[in-house]
Design a protein around this nucleic acid. Structure first.
Lengths: 134, 134
DNA sequence: GATAGGATCTGTAGGAACTACAGGTTCAAG
DNA sequence: CTTGAACCTGTAGTTCCTACAGATCCTATC
């Protein structure tokens, strides 16, 4: 494995399991990479970054279909400029809502940790902060 | 269905599918509610809020096991004060990382939308911003 | 070159987290 | 009472991984 990364190295670099990488290739989320004569996959740094991006987006709660739309933005050639603008603004709203929720959660956790300096466990306000209804 | 919510109403209130609510009950994430004589589930407002919280945490990328630990904080009586403190601080770090990633994504999307005012679709920097390796 | 052990292959099966459906019962409005 | 919507239980299917088996490839060491 000379001039690139094998799948195991890629897995370590990105935190994505080997089987998951192969799954992503199978469902078309990442392109099939070049192979050695022995059929081993060879990945480059750009692919490592792409995969790290995918992993992050998943950890942030975006579905694979949502990740696909983000990747389509990156890959280009698919949307007009107006569509890109609409798409990014819509996604941005989703992102802002997630940020707001996480900030509420962080504040609640911080409050709770700060209140926890004696023997009495304080009430945890996270449902008050994040259990509001639609 | 008089003095509470049926499962359909709860589903509408929280955005969680009926089958998902029943699934959550089956796996012990939410307690079984009281029933009518006809076996219909009856939920109260506290349960609606709990479920909305769960839905939000899932949308933010937390696994059900992570949600369980949060709920254990809420339900109390399970951890000492020191454990609560350790747990909330550890969770808070996770939350902060998610916030940072989302803020990077939001900024990238905002930049892209702002750059998209002509015919030429700009390059999308989201992988540059979120594809950094571990 | 031979060997050994780790890395990787393909394909299949299973787990987690839902999601849908079927056949039946309950509920509430007219 | 009737009707149609809401709900029940149980089973099966989908999505997104995750694990495993049997085989091949790769690389380091002798």
């Amino acid at each position: 494995m000379r001039a690139g990364l094998g799948i195991g190295a890629l897995s370590k670099r990105t935190g994505v399991h080997i089987e998951t990488i192969r799954y992503y290739e199978r469902i078309g989320l990442i392109p099939p990479p070049p192979r050695t004569a022995g059929r081993h996959r060879v990945y480059d740094e750009a692919m490592a970054r792409r995969l790290a991006f995918i992993a992050r987006m998943r950890a942030l709660g975006f579905t694979l279909d949502e990740v696909r739309t983000f990747l389509a933005l990156v890959d280009g050639g698919r949307y007009s400029c107006a569509q890109v603008r609409d798409l990014t603004l819509a996604h941005r709203e989703t992102v802002r809502r997630k940020i707001a929720d996480l900030q509420a959660l962080e504040a609640a956790l911080g409050d709770m940790a700060a209140a926890c300096h004696g023997d009495a466990v304080p009430d945890c306000p996270i449902i008050d902060r994040l259990g509001h209804l639609v």
